[in-house]
Design a protein around this nucleic acid. Structure first.
Lengths: 214, 214
DNA sequence: TACTGTGAACCGCTTCACAGCC
DNA sequence: GGCTGTGAAGCGGTTCACAGTA
């Protein structure tokens, strides 16, 4: 890495670039310019060049970027050129869907543990995993070498789930529960809250409509 | 509304404020200061005051904000003081989980139609809804007065789902499929991509680790 | 007194423009 | 010639500091 601090927005865009580059690769494209990639991602071409410059020089002047090489470089930069073991806490509708969803494994995030505090769910098998009591997280996290936790509990149990995960030594958490959680500084947290997105859509529709009326 | 342009980031934070204010209300708090709310949301107090100032003056100097009033005001500002009819396209694991998830209805987003192009799924009943062929979206959208579409198809079918929705006259789309889609300017799009979030967590863990070693 | 509302300062991300290189 | 890499300019969002008010 070349630069010390990297904007949060850059990381998000890098994830988009990975998505688009993988599609390009499937379609057989081997070279792409920052212009072409920018159009596919809906961003400014300089933006892409700047984002990449935080990590190194991956392009060839006068040519562009070799898709495969760039993909490898970005994945390396993001730390996703390896596999990560992941625990999921909260085996409800959403939790089940994620456990069964192939995308995590395909991208190197392997769901190796499913946890819930409901005695009726404990022992049940979901997507080849036995649901284990949340209290046993600590023991399981070290046994299974888990580094990331996913929270899919109801909001009121999100903080407790987080506490179990942190106590167990997890280094990062993706929280799908619609609740803020507090964690120590050295634990990375990301919120996935689809209500926020649907609110945003509703707001923009309202705005567009009032614009149309004026 | 007082201001013309509102930052995207402000809208996202307003959604967080709604979340936190509803929790406060349940806990019986009737007044909160920008300081208190800021701490609960993990943002700067001035930020909150600025965000609210885009829409009006909702506070009382020397006192703070009345929780119920503020909540009502924000919901009105966001356009979520009403119900919205929503169509879901793609009845896979994730689609089913969302159809069964109570949170949408609780927040005024009513899933009134479920669509899929798989003949084996058409006619099936999920969460009280009959799965209908995606081709019939246009007819159903006007019949059921649907304004928002949710896409939960595999990535390669996301654009087609979007096309059906747009053609049917939907005004906004929430795309859960890991693929960019192109839509006309007057259609609002939001991406919910949990891989981006888990990438971000992985990156931050990697960063923290390399910091620890230095 | 205590807290909001807001103009001004600040900061950081984005975009531009062009030098550097294949 | 064409495209990347990058310093500098531009812009928009965040934070500050304080005036305004219950």
């Amino acid at each position: 890495m070349k630069s010390a601090h990297i904007p949060r927005a850059t990381i998000q865009r890098l994830a988009v670039y990975v998505q688009v580059l993988e599609t390009l690769l499937q379609e057989g494209d081997s070279v792409i310019s920052s212009d072409g990639l920018a159009r596919a991602c809906g961003v400014n071409p300089s933006q892409i060049r700047k984002d990449l410059a935080y990590f190194g020089e991956f392009g060839v002047r006068g040519v562009g970027y070799y898709v495969q090489d760039l993909l490898t470089a970005i994945k390396q930069s993001l730390g996703i050129d390896r596999t990560w073991n992941v625990a999921l806490v909260g085996v409800g509708n959403l939790g089940r869907a994620l456990l069964r969803h192939g995308i995590f494994r395909r991208r190197g995030f392997i769901l190796v543990g499913a946890f819930d505090c409901d005695p009726f769910k404990i022992g049940e098998e979901v997507a080849g995993l036995e649901v284990v009591c949340s209290r046993r997280l600590k023991e399981k996290v070290s046994e299974l070498e888990i580094e990331i936790g996913i929270i899919t509990t109801p909001p009121e149990r999100a903080q407790r789930a987080a506490n179990y995960l942190i106590e167990a030594g997890v280094r990062g958490i993706v929280n799908f529960a619609p609740a803020r959680i507090s964690v120590p500084e050295n634990v990375a947290v990301e919120y996935v809250d689809f209500m926020h997105h649907i609110f945003s859509v509703a707001f923009n529709i309202s705005i567009n409509q009032s614009k149309g009326l004026s």
